[in-house]
Design a protein around this nucleic acid. Structure first.
Lengths: 343, 343
DNA sequence: TGTTAGCACTCATTCCCATCGAGTGCTAAT
DNA sequence: ATTAGCACTCGATGGGAATGAGTGCTAACA
C-alpha cells in the first residue's frame, strides 16, 4: 500500500464520496460495508479510511463522527469520472425541449437557459452572456425619440441587440441620422465590436473627418453607443440551494447569497474559463474565491464558428452530483452553441 | 374610553409600533415608560395595552412576553402617517444621484432603479417594467441575420426596445424586408402596441392583402415579433432580508425566496396597483398572497404623460420602517417618471 | 502480513430539570 | 382613574446524565 491507491481503497473512497453526495452526512465504516458489495469487516475499512485520511482524501468533523471527503477527494473522483458517464436520456430530452422553447428575445435565451440549468440540475444555473465586445458588428441604427434624444441600436452578427439612449446638445434631423448610420455601417462592417472601438478612434483623428461635422458627430454618437456595456450574468434557481442541508444554518446561506450578488467576482472567474474550451470544474477553493468556499462550479463554453462566445454552468455545493451535472452542463453548452449558430 | 382611541392610547400604540419596528422584539409595559415621555406607571400602561389588545391592535406571543403590533395596528399607523413625513434630505440626494447615473440600456434603467431602491431602503427593491402592450408603437425594423433568419426590432415611443429572432421558411431579400418595415411603420404609426395587435389582425383579413404576398408576409412577421413578451419584474436586494431577525429561521426564509421566484403572482399584485395612481401599501395579508405573509409591500406608479407605465416599490417585513420607506418609494417613482419623460 | 473481533474511549446529541427573569393580570389602596 | 404590590406564567438558559454512533488500538487469527 505504498502509494496508498490500490484498487480497493480507491473503490472505498468512491463509495464514501457517492454516499456522502447523496446523504450529506459523515460516513462511518459500517455504513460502507452495507453499501459496498465487497465483504470486509468494519475494522479493515477503518484501517483503509485512516490511510485515506492521512493522504488527505478524507477528514473527520470530530472523533466520533464518520469521514467526509475533502476537496482533494472530489478532484480525484471528478478526474477519473469525467470521461466516463454520458447524459441521462430523460435529462437530455428535457434540455432539448427547453432549448427549443427558448426562442424569444435574444437576451431572454440566456435567462431561459440559466433557468433550465437550475431546474434540471437542482442547483443554481449560471450563464455569462457573450461579452458584447467580442461579437462581430452587423448594423447600427439611430432612432429619433425627441428633439434632443436619440436611441442607438447596435446589432451583432449573432443577433444580440444593445440599445442606449443618447442625450444630445442639439437636434439632429432624422435624415441626417440615417446618413450617419449609413456611413458608420459602411466603415464598420465585419469588424468585431472591440475593433470597432479602435476604428472609431482612428477615424476621428483622420484628416477627412476634421472638416465634416456630420461624420464627426456620427463617430461621437457611435462611441457613446458602444461605451461600456457587456458582461451580463444570469443566475437562476437560488432557491434551490435553500434545501441543501449544508446550508441549513443561516450564516452560511447569507454568505452564498452575498456572493451571488457580487457578480463582478464571478464574472472574472467565468472569464478565465473562456480561454479553456470545454468543461471546466472548480471544486471549493480551486476557484480562489473565498466566497465560494464549500461550493463547486462546473462550466462549459459555448461557441460560434471559431470564436468562443461565452460560458455557462452550474453552481452547487462541493458535495455535488458531479456524475449527473457534468454531462448536463456539457450537453447544454452544445445545444446553446447550436442555437446561436448563424449560417 | 368608549371608542378606545383617546389620544393617550393612540400615542402609546404608536410608541409600541415604532419601538417594535426598530427592535423586532415584543415590547413590555415598562419599556414603554422609559421611551415614552409621559410619566405613567407600568400598571396604567398595562391597562391601556390590554384594551388595545382587545381591540385587535396588539397581540402577545405568549403570556410573559411583551406585545407585538398586529397588521391592523400597522394599517392605522400608516394611514395616520402617510401624509405627514417628507423624505430625508440625504436619501433624496442619494436617489437623485443614482437616477442620474442610470443612463444606459433602457431596460437597464429598471434594474438600476430596483437596485437603488433596495440599497436605500435596506429591503428588497421591485420594479415592474412597463407592460409593453400599453406602450405606443414607434417603429419596427427587420434585419436579415441569415438566409432564413431575421431579427425583428420593435421600438416604442418611450424608447424601450424589444427584439426577437424569427425563423423563416424561405429567404426574404433585404430590400423586401425594408419595404415590409416601411409598410408596417406607415399603417401602425401612433397606435399602442395592443392596438397594433388588433390592427394587424384586421389588416390581414382585408381584401387588399389577400392578393399581396409581400404585405401578407409582413403582417405575419410582425405578428410573430409582437407575440407574448412583456411583464418583466426586477427584484433586487434579496440578500438584504437575510439580516432581518424575523427570518433567522430557515423555513421562513425559504418561503420568501420561493415567493420571489414566483414572479407571476407578484406581477398580478403589481398590476392591480396600476389602476390606483400614487402610493399603495399592502400590509401582510392585505396582499391576499399567503406567500407574502409577514411581508409588506409599498408601491407607487410611474407615468408618462397621461398613461401609467408601471409600478415600482419596496418589499420588506410587516415591521418595516414605513416612515422612511414611503417617501423613498414616492420620490423614486417621481424621479423615474421624469427620467422616462419624452418631450 | 493482511484481516478481524473485542473493547475502551470520545464527543455530539438529546432529554430532563432547576433556575431565572421579564412581563403579565388581578386586587386593593390612593 | 391611577398605582403599588404580588402571585403567576412561561420562554430562555444552563448544567448534568444518558445515549449512541463511530473511532483507534491491541491482540488474536489465517
Amino acid at each position: 500500500m505504498q502509494d496508498g491507491m490500490n484498487p480497493r481503497s480507491r473503490q472505498i473512497l468512491e463509495t464514501i464520496i457517492e454516499d456522502y453526495i447523496s446523504t450529506a452526512e459523515p460516513i462511518g465504516s459500517s455504513a460502507i460495508r452495507s453499501r459496498h458489495g465487497l465483504s470486509l469487516s468494519p475494522a479493515t475499512i477503518r484501517n483503509v479510511m485512516a490511510d485515506l485520511e492521512e493522504m488527505g482524501y478524507l477528514a473527520s468533523p470530530h472523533t466520533s463522527a464518520g469521514r467526509v471527503p475533502t476537496e482533494k477527494a472530489y478532484r480525484l473522483y471528478v478526474d477519473s469520472l469525467l470521461a466516463v458517464r454520458g447524459i441521462d436520456r430523460v435529462e437530455r430530452e428535457e434540455i432539448r425541449r427547453r432549448c427549443s422553447m427558448a426562442g424569444k428575445d435574444v437576451d431572454g435565451v440566456f435567462r431561459e437557459i440559466s433557468q433550465m440549468l437550475s431546474s434540471v440540475s437542482h442547483y443554481m444555473g449560471i450563464v455569462a452572456a457573450p461579452s458584447f465586445s467580442s461579437n462581430v458588428f452587423r448594423q447600427m441604427e439611430f432612432i429619433r425619440l425627441g428633439s434632443r434624444r436619440i436611441l442607438a441600436i447596435l446589432v451583432s452578427q449573432s443577433g444580440s441587440v444593445q440599445n442606449r439612449i443618447i442625450e444630445l446638445e442639439q437636434d439632429i434631423p432624422a435624415e441626417e441620422l440615417l446618413r450617419m448610420a449609413n456611413y458608420l455601417n459602411s466603415i464598420l462592417h465585419g469588424l468585431t465590436i472591440s475593433q470597432v472601438k479602435g476604428r472609431i478612434v482612428k477615424e476621428m483623428e483622420s484628416e477627412r473627418i476634421r472638416y465634416d461635422d456630420l461624420l464627426a458627430n456620427a463617430l461621437r454618437l457611435s462611441q457613446q453607443a458602444l461605451d461600456d456595456g457587456d458582461g451580463e450574468i444570469f443566475i437562476e434557481g437560488q432557491a434551490n440551494i435553500l434545501d441543501l442541508p449544508e446550508f441549513a444554518d443561516v450564516g452560511k446561506m447569507k454568505e452564498i447569497f452575498r456572493a451571488m450578488e457580487q457578480k463582478s467576482q464571478l464574472l472574472s472567474l467565468l472569464d478565465s474559463c473562456l480561454k479553456a474550451p470545454g468543461v471546466n470544474i472548480f471544486i471549493g477553493s480551486e476557484s480562489h474565491l473565498n466566497s465560494m468556499s464549500g461550493m463547486s462550479l462546473i462550466t462549459s463554453t459555448y461557441v460560434s464558428g471559431k470564436n468562443t462566445l461565452g460560458v455557462l454552468g452550474v453552481i452547487g455545493p462541493t458535495r455535488m452530483g458531479y456524475g449527473k451535472v457534468i454531462p448536463i452542463v456539457d450537453y447544454t453548452a452544445r445545444m446553446l452553441t447550436r442555437l446561436l449558430h448563424v449560417e
